[in-house]
Design a protein around this nucleic acid. Sequence first.
DNA 1: GGAATAAGAAACGCTTGCGTAGCTAAGATA
DNA 2: TATCTTAGCTACGCAAGCGTTTCTTATTCC
Lengths: 205, 205
Amino acid sequence: MSDDGRERRPGATRRRGEELVRAIHEAAIEELLAVGVDRMTMEGIARRAATAKTSLYRRWSSTEEILIDAFLRVFPQEEPSPSSDDLRGDLVRALRMMRDWMTTVGARAVAEVVTARDRNPGLVEAVYARVFGKRGGGFTQTVLRHYVAHGAIAPARLTPVVLDIGEALVVKYRMDHSELPDDAYIDAVVDHAILPALGPPPGGD
Amino acid sequence: MSDDGRERRPGATRRRGEELVRAIHEAAIEELLAVGVDRMTMEGIARRAATAKTSLYRRWSSTEEILIDAFLRVFPQEEPSPSSDDLRGDLVRALRMMRDWMTTVGARAVAEVVTARDRNPGLVEAVYARVFGKRGGGFTQTVLRHYVAHGAIAPARLTPVVLDIGEALVVKYRMDHSELPDDAYIDAVVDHAILPALGPPPGGD
DNA sequence: GGAATAAGAAACGCTTGCGTAGCTAAGATA
DNA sequence: TATCTTAGCTACGCAAGCGTTTCTTATTCC
């Protein structure tokens, strides 16, 4: 009931420029997660940023514009670094990394926006361009390419489908249940789906 | 601008009872697809059904209730019927069936509702219970179980992960691109992901 | 210090949806 | 035909968001 505001700071300094803009960006993401793309309002964002509506309209003219702007400066995406000679271990680590990433604000924002893609095409593009990386976050992708480069996987095996298996199963799990998969499920994804699709190593290890 | 109404029928008969209820249900689904879960309104549904707000409030007290009700009487879900001795063919057919199903109103409704799961848990349950079938629509599932029963697949291979591979990849494809996968992609899903996960047939065909 | 800049606050009329009430009239029932 | 049920319509006061205007007041810049 009293969750929508932000505390006033009576004697505090007045924000301007970059500082204010950043605060508004953060508020926009918060608003997105709280009420969904379709219910975002300028007044809501202003409330969350503890600023005046006027300050929003001075720079943007819709919630969508604010959001796109917000996406364009956020969410660094960690890359898995396949190091060892342990394909299975690296795949598991990559998918765990993806799972962790899915708990972040950025990832939840992606999910929020993608469903409403028909209603907000511009937003979806911004999100894919910046937050989600190229086509769905290459978590296992990085690992798989690494092992292909080192001759442990036959290059022909790395079709677009195969590159997506892990991510697809994790995303679907999250869709069906309301939690993220646990370690055992991730292990199973690697053992029952990804590794079989890779087939035997070319040289016969 | 004038898309939201429905034509009046001046001398026409006045709907009541079941007929009216069905019209309202349809209008609710339409409204869902048009504006999204989060922006549905009683007035919008009434407008679409060309009825009076009063007639809605006589039976339900929120858009969510109407939607749940609507879901509870809809969308027969076709089942793939694995017949021949053609595992690959049956899998391809099952996934094509899934793809076709995804173009229906019901499927789009699922997608609409699932993202906003945090905000509408009741809806999500109703949708999963009725529209989406048990946990994500058993398109390939039906096929796979059939072939296990006939000894063509080792039962141990049929883990929850494996049952989901095909559906997961199709869903992810639709998330990443804005179209549904074509036949070639479905073939690839079967050949590069599902079949490898099933391993060689137990008897050695 | 004084001027320029930009943020905060309040109010504007307008629109849309809320949930309810009062009434008219269509269609089923007797 | 008379009656009862139930659509359909209109209107209500209320709340929230719109986009804009006007004014005050912090900060920054010179």
